Amino acid sequence: MSKTNPGNFFEDFTVGQVIRHATPRTVTEGDRALYGALYPTRFALPSSAAFAESVGLTPAPVEDLVAFHIAFGKTVPDVSLNAVANLGYAELRFHRPVVTGDTLSTSSEVIGLKENSNGKTGVVYVRSTAVNQRGEVALDWVRWVMVHKRDQDAPAPETVVPTVADAVAVEDLLIPDGLDFSSYDFDAAGESHRWGDYAVGEKIDHVDGITLTDAEHMLATRLWQNTAKVHFNTEARPDGKRLVYGGHIISLARALSFNGLANAQLISAINAGAHAAPAFAGDTIYAWSEVLDVADTPAPGVGAIRLRLVATRGRDTTTTLRGEDGKYAEGVLLDLDYWALIPQ
């Protein structure tokens, strides 16, 4: 009998099933350095221990998305090893900053199942939670993924589609203990724009572009221990291409957003996310943001800004998101709705 793990197929999931994912992963300064090597990130708070201390966070946290990638990667062997595509995210909250030395462990509960009409695939909905070595929740989120069936003749399960919130309510955002932007150093951060300088409906072109390479996206996926075959194996897809991990696009777009949103220092929640189209080596990625909302928080000097971050293949000077038919415009790769914390 084979001792290897072929991954779960659609019919292996049941609503209410809880999966503890291997293996725990300790965050190191190497993760911080490699993240900066892979993505052109310049946000002052995770870059500078002195800046982090000046706003009340000691030790300095790593980028929020480091924690997301690590936690997400843990779920892949059990949830999406046999996936066709990762379809979306919702209700993601960062409960506390992750610092070097933290060890993250992840578990998932299956909260929904829906077989597709072709009988070959189905959509699996899970709520995943990552905790640190003290059992404290670092982040949790809902995602849904399309997964192959092992046996097309296997009976379809009862359809259960969970209800998820359109957005995390501002009062449910979790502000890090001690965070204080009242003496914020705008010169060190790199831009003067603060909470009151952004208007709802404003669109910000982040200007710069990055061309994807196979070496970088595969290094990133290995760093996060994401084992999905489509990212490494050219025989895993009919077109013979390695699919770029969607989280790689998220981090590239977030890093590009520094130009115009340098003071959106911490991601507090991700309200929704969709990978609108696949990306491959050779694609050049650009990004723009739209301000969806602004809100106050109880933390001194700290405001919240809700942003739509869009990544495109090639330059999109019109900042068009959807066509008249409601479908994503050609070239849109990512549509991410999130809350960030910004000085007032």
Rank of each mutant, 00 (worst) to 15 (best):
N5Q: 13
N8K: 14
F9M: 10
Q17R: 12
T23P: 12
V27Q: 03
A33L: 13
R42W: 00
P61E: 03
F68P: 01
F68K: 01
G88S: 12
A90N: 06
A90R: 14
A90I: 05
E91S: 10
S105Q: 14
S105R: 14
L113Q: 13
N118Q: 13
G122A: 12
S128V: 04
R134T: 07
V145A: 10
M146S: 10
A154S: 15
E158S: 11
V168M: 04
E171W: 04
I175P: 02
I175V: 14
S183F: 06
Y184N: 01
D185N: 13
A188T: 05
H193E: 10
W195N: 07
W195S: 09
E202S: 08
H206F: 07
D208P: 00
T213A: 01
D214C: 08
P238S: 15
P238V: 14
H248I: 09
H248V: 12
G260V: 10
S268M: 04
I270M: 13
N271E: 06
G273F: 07
G282Y: 10
T284I: 03
I285W: 00
V294N: 06
D296T: 15
A299H: 08
A304Y: 05
T318E: 13
T319E: 02
G323W: 04
D325F: 05
G326W: 08
E330D: 14
Y338K: 08
